[in-house]
Design a protein around this nucleic acid. Structure first.
Lengths: 236, 236
DNA sequence: TTTCCAGTTGATCAAATGATAATTAGGCAT
DNA sequence: ATGCCTAATTATCATTTGATCAACTGGAAA
């Protein structure tokens, strides 16, 4: 098989070998970036237990070269985390949620659509789930931010929207926050279905998200009123 | 440290060593069961890439013994899947959803509470997510069942509830099913938060589930009516 | 051209891993 | 008590894995 191949391949191998060709002898920073981006895709696909040799192969380089750029696999993985998570959170989103010059429905749709552009992403979702299973505090920290910067503000806007007491006179109850976790779950589980369980996207995201929000806002008031009433009773 | 311990430990070690004592020389079927149950907990915690030696240590046995009971690691993992998934689906649940002698709200709350008893479980959730990341068709198959046996029936009940045309005269649209995926996502994401991301259970499950359902049922009609109306228009 | 240096590779190590074979030892039937 | 059957262990193998090091290479500077 492949008889006489070797001679003709010898030339070709230099430009296209393995999955992607990796133009030999790159400047340091270019090669470093190539490794990181390759590592992101590779670990998102195969998990962090996957072998560095396989990563190198996919990059079209040899395995020891990785160690010229990163002192250990662990450090490389750390870099992958940073690259994927740190710069995908846009602080403007926080202001968007509490901008009372617009209807709440518009704000929430705008926020979750914008957020989906950053987060409905193969690499993001899988690396987030992988690191969650590994019990990295990264996830806990991230979800704490979600809670503080997204869910609780939404709770407060909901209170305001319905003319209910603000959170100073009546602190938020866990069940109120849990209610909004429901919205967030509907939103995030869509990405999990697609990127973890490989189910197809059957409804365009923007449409599905708008439905999520409308449904949430229509459904919330009764639950919310009940919760607040119960809490007011408990406190007397 | 531990001076003179060795002598007294010698006896104790026979009954309690490592994490759990593993009473030497068990009958074949008992040991087999012990291995499987240990493997379930072990792989749920550490993922399927984890080493068989670590598993053996946790079981209080030696690693080669595993191979007296299972020809390969892969076969053992297969057994773990079966043990965790096959027998946790209760066909009675399907009947419960479509039992029109009860209010839909009651049925859905009853179903999701019962389902949560089987599925809000450290082992179940983590193994399901692990196998999803590995792209086992197991997950796709399972979620197909969820779709057919749970989500679509709920859609049909919703149509009936609101006096809308049944699915024979107007087939279900993907967006209608997607809407119910939202409920399911709120439900399942609660378990992911707890067992994958290690967030605390802040609201009792039964209560949170009842809120999910009530909110869903209050929020669904407008969305649903809009969807059905749009579809009727498209078909003309 | 020659020198030099940074990018890259091939060879290799030590530890870990899945798996196997030979050996030991516990408990039941006789 | 004795001997047999088989559960369980010890020792070991081949492969894989993260990591290291000396040698090679190609282009820019002298």
């Amino acid at each position: 098989m492949q008889s006489g191949h070797d001679l003709t391949m010898d030339k070709a191998r230099q430009t296209a070998q393995g999955a992607e060709d990796a133009a030999r002898r790159l400047p340091r920073d270019v090669r470093e970036k190539a490794i990181i981006e390759g590592a992101i895709r590779f670990f998102a696909e195969n998990g962090f237990e996957a072998a560095t040799r396989a990563l190198a192969k996919e990059l079209g380089i040899t395995q020891p070269l990785l160690y010229r750029y990163f002192p250990s696999k662990e450090v490389l993985i750390e870099r992958v985390y940073n690259e994927v998570f740190v710069s995908r959170w846009n602080p403007e989103w926080e202001a968007l949620i509490v901008d009372r010059s617009r209807p709440l429905e518009d704000r929430l749709i705008a926020f979750y659509r914008a957020y989906s552009k950053a987060v409905y992403d193969y690499v993001w979702v899988r690396i987030f789930v992988y690191s969650g299973l590994k019990k990295m505090d990264l996830n806990t920290r991230y979800l704490t931010i979600i809670r503080e910067k997204v869910l609780i503000p939404i709770c407060e806007e909901l209170r305001h929207e319905r003319g209910l007491p603000d959170t100073n006179s009546l602190p938020l109850g866990e069940d109120e926050v849990e209610m909004v976790w429901g919205l967030h779950g509907a939103f995030f589980y869509r990405a999990v279905r697609r990127f973890v369980y490989s189910l197809p996207e059957r409804v365009p995201d923007d449409e599905a998200i708008a439905n999520d929000i409308r449904q949430f806002l229509h459904g919330a008031p009764p639950t919310q009123k009940k919760i607040v009433k119960d809490r007011a009773k408990d406190r007397s």
